[in-house]
């Protein structure tokens, strides 16, 4: 399965990555190589095999409903790029 520059541009849009046309073209080539590698999976007979998302087939532990965190705003916001009145600032969000 090969991808072209416009496929890469669509993926980059979904992944919110700025990519120049030249970089997209180069990425199309290298990602096509990767897709060729992973394309080998198609030959595998996996009929009836349950997908395995976790190596150990383990089960989730549930935690008790307790408030264990205290206000750490000042330390957690110490390295925020833009803050005002305790809020993170971003370019205008349009609804």
């Amino acid at each position: 399965m090969a991808v072209d520059q416009s496929d890469i541009e669509k993926l980059a849009e979904l992944a919110r990555l700025e990519i120049s046309p030249e970089a997209a073209s180069a990425a199309a080539q290298s990602i096509s190589q990767v897709l060729e590698l992973v394309g080998q999976l198609q030959a595998a007979d996996t009929s009836g095999v349950t997908p395995m998302a976790h190596p150990l087939d383990a089960v989730q532990r549930l935690r008790a409903d307790e408030v264990t965190e205290t206000d750490q705003r000042s330390s957690l916001q110490a390295m925020a790029p833009a803050i005002e009145d305790g809020l993170y600032l971003v370019p205008r969000v349009v609804e």
Binding site: R63, D65, E66, V67, T68, E69, D71, Q72, L76
Partner: peptide, 29 residues
């Protein structure tokens, strides 16, 4: 109406000062 959040131990109480109930997990640190 749980006391703490679904994936962290931060409080769910309504009306707190902004980001004082957002712990490192909630902030995706």
């Amino acid at each position: 109406a749980t006391r703490s959040k679904i994936f962290s131990g931060a409080s769910t109480a309504f009306g707190a000062s902004p980001n004082t109930q957002a712990c490192a997990i909630d902030l995706a640190m």
